[in-house]
Simulated scan of single mutants.
Amino acid sequence: MLGTIIGIIIVGLIAGFIARALVPGDDSMSIGATLLLGIVGSFIGGFLGYLIFHKDADEGFLQPSSWIGSIIGAIIALLIWRAVKGRRAVR
């Protein structure tokens, strides 16, 4: 159980950093916010992967598809965060 939690944290942190590097723009996020972005992205990517391919985490977390799904999910989460953040700034 502890290994799974540590794995999720590591994958989330790496996915968050990669998502922030791939999406252009200024994001003043702390390491904790980047970690949260990656973890949320992992859940989004895992959910989308399950909907599309009908496979889940029972086959393991350290697969290329899970990394790609985590990064794509983190990009989606980052774009949603920017849209919500931009909406608040306009008001």
Rank of each mutant, 00 (worst) to 15 (best):
M1G: 11
M1D: 04
L2N: 04
L2P: 00
L2R: 12
T4P: 00
T4N: 06
I5H: 01
I6G: 00
I8T: 06
I10K: 03
V11H: 11
G12V: 10
G12A: 05
G12T: 12
I14G: 08
I14D: 05
G16F: 02
G16A: 03
G16T: 02
F17R: 12
A19T: 07
R20D: 01
A21Y: 10
L22K: 05
G25I: 02
G25W: 02
D26S: 07
D27K: 06
D27A: 06
S28A: 12
S30V: 03
S30T: 15
G32Y: 05
A33V: 05
T34C: 07
L35C: 07
L35N: 02
L36W: 03
G38Y: 02
I39V: 15
G41Q: 10
S42I: 01
S42N: 08
S42R: 01
I44D: 03
G45L: 05
G46A: 09
G46V: 11
F47C: 05
L48M: 15
L48G: 10
L48W: 11
Y50R: 06
I52K: 08
F53K: 06
F53T: 10
F53L: 14
H54W: 02
H54F: 04
H54I: 07
H54A: 13
H54C: 04
H54S: 13
K55Y: 03
K55V: 14
A57F: 11
D58T: 13
L62P: 00
L62C: 00
Q63C: 00
Q63R: 15
S65A: 12
S66C: 01
S66V: 13
I68F: 10
I68M: 11
G69P: 00
S70A: 15
A74S: 15
A74D: 05
I76T: 14
I76N: 08
I76D: 07
L79V: 15
I80T: 15
W81M: 06
K85E: 09
G86H: 10
G86L: 11
R87M: 12
R88W: 09
R88P: 00
V90N: 06
R91W: 09
R91M: 10
